[in-house]
């Protein structure tokens, strides 16, 4: 799977502090750490970028590109910052993201065309976030059709189904998987990505990785092309390199409803099985799901 490293994120206090004080070294270290971990893209999440978007984006893109030679995913709600960011990219960038909202289609989407960028298109619309596979399909087809009409081909579009925290709505993990499975049929040629860590928002911090990694395995089997993820999670990157085949096989067995002899498994493997059962919707989520 293509991994977009999420670690340069404005919500992180260390990152927002470094950007404010123009601490190039701190940002470059984060970029290099992700590069060494093996990510394919580096996401620069600038948030809404309301204050001084031009100078901030210029500085950040320049700083990161001076340290690593990876394509960037420019992630901001500000069309001004997006324009500047895309313009400066040395390698073909990813515009992250546009949605079916009128404002986004009008102000953000044309930038993808202008800079010939690839573009993340989410299922959000002015009506909100669709909550099942079928309504996700309905809203994405409309938005992608609009992008096509501007001359952006399916091959340049990365569909984001919008993943909600398992803690907020457990059924969403399953709905997103269903949607990813049908995506090639409804929009041939499109790619897919999503914010993986959002799954574990609000869950116990030390257990977030377990949810994220298990779900990445499940998504991979559904045909997911890419995830925006924590590049510094070593196990996550190892799974993606194919270095944990026995864990992957176990998760697949849960997905197939096969019976599993829990007593014969090491503790870590049992945790993956329990987590897969939660994400499949078989076990009710609670913060103590691993002790269940």
């Amino acid at each position: 799977m293509i991994i977009i490293g999420e670690n340069i994120h404005i919500i992180s206090k260390a990152v927002s502090g470094a950007i404010k004080s123009r601490d190039a070294q701190a940002i470059q270290e984060l970029a290099m750490a992700q590069s060494q971990a093996g990510v394919h893209y580096i996401d620069l999440n600038l948030g809404p970028a309301t204050k001084d978007p031009i100078a901030m984006t210029e500085w950040l893109v320049k700083t990161v590109q001076a340290a690593v030679d990876l394509p960037l995913s420019i992630d901001t709600l500000s069309p001004v910052a997006m324009d500047v960011g895309l313009k400066m990219c040395k390698r073909r960038p990813l515009l992250n993201s546009i949605s079916g909202k009128a404002d986004s289609k009008e102000h953000m989407l044309p930038l993808a065309k202008k800079y010939s960028a690839e573009v993340v298109v989410s299922v959000l619309t002015d009506k909100g976030c669709p909550m099942d596979a079928a309504s996700r399909a309905e809203s994405i087809m409309e938005t992608v059709a609009h992008a096509n009409s501007l001359g952006i081909p399916n091959e340049d579009i990365w569909v984001d189904p919008i993943l909600l925290p398992v803690n907020a709505d457990q059924s969403q993990a399953k709905e997103v998987m269903e949607f990813i499975k049908i995506l090639p049929d409804i929009l041939p040629g499109v790619k897919s990505t999503l914010g993986l860590s959002n799954l574990s928002n609000g869950t116990p911090p030390q257990l977030r990785g377990m949810l994220n990694r298990t779900y990445m395995i499940m998504l991979g089997r559904c045909g997911m092309y890419s995830v925006i993820a924590d590049a510094l999670d070593r196990q996550l990157m190892a799974i993606n390199r194919g270095e944990m085949p026995e864990i992957v096989k176990l998760v697949y067995q849960v997905m197939d409803g096969e019976s599993i002899d829990m007593a014969s498994l090491p503790a870590d493997a049992r945790d993956y099985v329990k987590t897969a059962r939660v994400l499949k919707g078989e076990t009710l989520y609670s913060h103590s799901w691993l002790e269940d």
Binding site: N167, Q170, L284, Y285, S286, H287, S288, E291, D292
Partner: peptide
Amino acid sequence: DINLMKELNIKICK
């Protein structure tokens, strides 16, 4: 909250 309900049950039943 059904998730917190289950959470409390797990803790109590330890």
